[in-house]
């Protein structure tokens, strides 16, 4: 299993993702976006960072890089695709996933550890958890507020496409536990098929035991095993 971690100009979590994937036993390599996806790719990570300086909107420029057509084709063929943070913004901007991630309600960049409740454990990304589990993973973003129209939101809920919601340590979905004002405390969602997911929190920053904090993100990355 070789996972391509797509590096755009301004990506900065690509090395972390490769290392964290290696820790859970997944062979991964960085791929410069202009070089296109390797032919034998078995998975794709759109990593965090500030691609193209967040010009226009976070993720808007990278979403129109030609490699995203290849990522879309791979996703349609069932190749697992995970977007993290800026990668999640790119995923929504490229319409791999619904909705938009926009300016935090606080209007501030927020870098902190948050609790997430696993809403749907029946996805590759959450197979390591049980529904209702509370995991701890850090966020680091200024534009992570999930927005989507009411009707589309209700469809996402009905279709079980919400993977993670921000919660308190006990698993309660509260306004106080919502770090960025996301609709429904949404932290991660699925695309059209369950093999495509995006999330604002960083599982690769909660994977290596050496970092001395939660390793709860390992389960998400294990989807590529």
């Amino acid at each position: 299993m070789t996972v391509a971690v797509v590096q755009f100009g301004g990506s900065n979590c690509d090395r972390d993702a490769v290392r964290a994937l290696g820790h859970v036993g997944v062979d991964a390599e960085r791929v410069w976006h202009e070089d296109g996806l390797p032919a034998d790719v078995d998975g794709v990570v759109l990593p965090g960072g500030f691609s193209y300086g967040d010009y226009l909107r976070a993720g808007a420029m990278a979403a129109h890089s030609p490699i995203m057509n290849e990522v879309r084709d791979a996703a349609e063929d069932g190749t697992p695709v995970l977007g993290v943070c800026n990668g999640a913004q790119i995923g929504c901007e490229s319409k791999l996933t619904p909705g938009a991630f926009t300016t935090n309600a606080s209007a501030r960049f927020q870098c902190e550890s948050v609790h997430l409740r696993v809403e749907n454990a029946d996805t590759p990304w959450t197979a390591a958890y049980d529904a209702g589990d509370v995991i701890e993973i850090p966020i680091a973003h200024g534009e992570g507020r999930f927005e989507i129209g009411e009707e589309r939101y209700e469809e996402l809920v009905a279709d079980d496409r919400i993977v993670f919601r921000y919660c308190d340590a006990a698993g309660n979905i509260t306004e106080k536990a919502n770090p960025n004002g996301s609709r429904g405390n949404v932290a991660g969602i699925l695309g059209e098929c369950e093999t495509v997911a995006v999330m604002m929190p960083h599982p690769e920053r909660a994977t290596l035991p050496d970092l001395g904090r939660s390793v709860d993100g390992q389960g998400v990355l294990s989807a590529f095993v």
Binding site: A60, H64, P98, G99, A100, I148
Partner: peptide, 8 residues
């Protein structure tokens, strides 16, 4: 296609 995001 680019300048606006129709979602928001």
């Amino acid at each position: 296609r680019l300048l606006a995001n129709p979602t928001i």
